[in-house]
Simulated assay, not measured.
Amino acid sequence: MDKILIADDEAEIRSLLKLYLENEGYAVAEAGDGKQALEILAGGDVSLCLLDVMMPEIDGFHVLKEMRKTSNIPVIIISAKDTDPDKIIGLDLGADDYMIKPFNPLEAVARVRSNLRRYHALKGDNNSKQEEVSLLDLKLDKDACILYRGDTKIELTSTELKMMELFMENPGKVFTKEKIYEYAWGDTYVVADNNIMVAISKLRSKLDEDPSAYIKTVRGLGYRMEK
């Protein structure tokens, strides 16, 4: 059974999410501040973390930074901060998804489900052999979740890995935001959700200083990777 950590200083939010997650069959742990969240995460039995940004003791961004030193479990940030810079900080530190408060608890459960599904597949729960995809000077190790540009290693989140997998396995093909979102997040695209644009921007910055060096914007259509 997957165990979900809800780290949020608002007891009402923790209780609401716990109710919906337990109804879906998940085990749930709660933390009311960042210090308690890190203590629970140190136990090593958490499968996914729903992480608030504004928490006492240690804020969510610092919690994420610390946990990424030892853990690659999915992290979904839940925050009242809805600006792109805040999302970029979260994604840069290793978050897999970002939800804005207030949110629908059913959407939260759906995001938990899709992130866990992707995480278990990437862990190799299906005992698949290591796979590599090469394009231009890039090599994607799908098993280790690492991208190489020449000899340089680029760490990817699970979402970024899925996006690069889609682009590199289909060079020259244009993908809409909807297709990218459905493939990388494993969920139905929500028009008002700009996570995809923030994620593409962050991925580009990891690949090269030139944002259009690898992933091209096709105006009015979507994105593609050059052959």
Rank of each mutant, 00 (worst) to 15 (best):
G60T: 00
H62I: 08
L64D: 05
L64E: 05
K65W: 10
E66G: 06
M67H: 04
R68Y: 09
K69H: 10
S71V: 05
S71W: 03
N72V: 09
N72Y: 07
I73N: 04
I73A: 03
I73D: 04
P74Y: 08
I76A: 08
A80W: 00
A80L: 00
K81V: 00
K81N: 05
K81D: 02
K81M: 08
T83R: 09
T83A: 14
T83H: 08
D84N: 06
D84V: 12
P85Q: 01
P85E: 04
D86M: 11
I88N: 03
I88V: 11
I89S: 04
G90A: 09
G90T: 04
L91H: 03
L91N: 02
L93F: 09
G94S: 06
A95T: 00
Y98L: 03
Y98N: 01
K101L: 12
K101Y: 06
K101H: 07
F103S: 09
N104P: 01
N104D: 15
L106H: 12
V109R: 13
A110L: 14
A110K: 15
R111S: 10
R113W: 12
R113P: 07
R113L: 10
R113I: 06
S114H: 14
S114D: 13
N115G: 07
L116E: 12
R117A: 15
R117P: 09
